[in-house]
Amino acid sequence: MKFGVIVFPGSNCDHDAYHVISKHVGQPVDFIWHRDTNLSAYDAVIIPGGFSYGDYLRAGALARFSPVMASVKEFAARGGFVLGICNGFQILAEAGLLPGALIRNRDLHFICEHIHVRVENDDTPFTNELKRGTVLRIPVAHAEGNYVCDDATLAELQREERIIFRYCDETGAVTDATNPNGSRDNIAGICNRERNVLGMMPHPERACEDLLGSSDGRDIFRSLAATLAAAHV
């Protein structure tokens, strides 16, 4: 199996993602410059956090037009696994690979802190090493993480169990008080209908070593590796 980490001008969590895959998952991984368009060597690509194109226009809006994104769309359509983290989630939403949009946080602040999310669905390629209801302590670092979508989209996400993570407290209670940014239905991460594209605002790649305050993020990457191993790639 092989992982790729896409690098846009302004990405700044690319090295963290690379480190996690190479050190903690123990699999080969490459950086993919945003002008590259050949993803044929990869089984999973990570769109990392950061400030691609300086967040100009809207967060993720300009990255979506980078040459690599047309390839990411084809890659996803062929069943390749795509994990978008923070700015990566914003890019996937702008590109139409995930529904909805991420707007300015409810209280306007840039939030940089450890929060808790509850695993809402453990039957996905990204969470199969976790248990439904597990609470993960993972950092968020964003100004535009407030997930919005229309009523029909929300109903579809709920019905199809595509809400993968919700903001909660340390006991797993999901309330408005545990919603750091005003996201609809406390949504912290969603997947597409085919379940091979996941976008999440929290940073699991920054929560893979106890030294950094938490290693709860590791199981997300391990789940993906287990999925790929089971598919013998």
Binding site: L57, R58, A61, F65, P99, A101, V148, C149, D150
Partner: peptide
């Protein structure tokens, strides 16, 4: 296509 996001 670019200047607006039709979702919002």
């Amino acid at each position: 296509e670019v200047l607006s996001n039709p979702v919002i």
